[in-house]
Simulated assay, not measured.
Amino acid sequence: MDVVDLKEFYASPLGAAARRLIAHRIRARLRGMSGCIVLGVGYATPYLDVWRDEADRVIAFMPARQGVAHWPVNGVSATALVDEAEMPLPDGCVDLALVVHGLELTEQLPETLREIWRVLSPGGRAVFIVPNRSGMWARTDRTPFGHGRPFSRTQLTDLLRDAMFSPSGWANALFVPPIARGFLVRSAAAWERLGLWLWPAFSGVIIVEAVKQVYAVRKPKRARRFVPKLKPVPVPAPAPVGSRRSGEIFHANRAGPASAIVIDRCLVGKGGETA
C-alpha cells in the first residue's frame, strides 16, 4: 500500500469510523503514558494524536517501500522514512511501539519484529494491530486491511513468541461491514457492541499487546552433524610367492574421507625374477 492510498482511506467516512473504533480500543488498554517515548511503525499516525500532549516524545517511522507523509499537520514533522529492519535508534530507548499497517505489509517480518524488540526498553510494550484472517475486512481490497497477509490469533502468538515477545492482552475491533454506506458508517458503534457480544472471533482486526522479554533467550537449533556409516569391505588375501597371481594389483577400499587406497604389491616369482 502506498502512503497516498492510506491517507485517502483515513480521510474517507469509513476510514474515520475505523480510526475512532480502533483508537477507542487502544486507549482503553494504554493509559498513563506521561514521560514516555512512543514510536509508531508502519502507518500509525492516525492513532498517535492521543499521546502527543501526554507522552514526552512521539515519533513515527514509515517503511521505505510505502512512502512518508508529513505529521503532525501543524509544526515540525515527527515522521521519517526508514528501513523497518534497520531503525536509526539506539538500543532500549522506546517505551511503547504502536505497529499499524506494518506486519501484514512488510517483506521482512522476522527482521522487523527483532528490530522492534531491540529498540524497546526492558519491559517495554508493543501494540500490534493486524487484519483478522476470519474477519470480513481481510476479504476485500477496498480498505488497507485487505492487503498483505492476515493473521489468526494462534499465528500471531507463535510469531511474537519466536521474536521474544510475551502477549499480555488481546482485543478485537471493526465489526461493521467494510462497505462505505452512510447508514452502516453511522451505525458503526452499534455494530461494534453487537459484534463484541455475539461474534468476537470475526472482528476486522486483532489488537495484541506484548511485552519485551529479556530473561529468556531461545537458542538456535544446531545442525545435526552427519557421521558417515562405515561398512566393512572384504579384501582378498595376498597370494603366496611364486603362485599364478604374481604381479597382481590388490585394492583395499575403505569408507571415509579418502575414496580408496591402492596397494601395489610386487612379488618375486620363481627363478628370482621380479614381477
Rank of each mutant, 00 (worst) to 15 (best):
C36Y: 08
V241K: 15
Q108N: 11
N74T: 09
G242W: 05
L196P: 01
I26H: 00
E273G: 07
I206G: 00
G272E: 05
V211W: 08
P234S: 12
A255P: 09
R245G: 07
R27K: 10
H251G: 10
I249G: 10
L159R: 10
V262S: 11
W137T: 02
V38W: 02
M33A: 06
I179T: 08
V227A: 13
H24L: 08
V50H: 12
P13Y: 07
P228D: 10
H24E: 15
K221P: 13
E8S: 08
V211K: 14
F202Q: 14
P131L: 05
K7L: 08
S243T: 08
E107M: 15
L48N: 01
V41W: 02
A28K: 15
R29D: 14
D53T: 15
G32W: 04
E8T: 06
A16Q: 14
R65S: 13
R186T: 07
R224L: 10
L21E: 02
E84Q: 07
P144Y: 02
G102C: 13
V217I: 13
I129A: 04
A138R: 00
A23D: 06
H251Q: 14
A189C: 05
L174G: 01
P167I: 04
C93P: 03
A80G: 09
L6K: 00
C36K: 06
W191S: 02
R118F: 13
E54P: 01
P200G: 04
G256P: 05
G247P: 13
S246I: 12
W191A: 00
V58G: 00
Y10C: 04
I116R: 08
C93K: 07
V262Y: 10
R161W: 10
A190W: 06
A252K: 08
G135H: 02
R142P: 03
W191T: 00
W170F: 08
A275L: 14
V262K: 13
R193F: 01
D5R: 09
V4L: 06
P72H: 00
C36H: 07
A210D: 04
R20C: 07
I207L: 13
M87W: 03
D162P: 10
A78I: 03
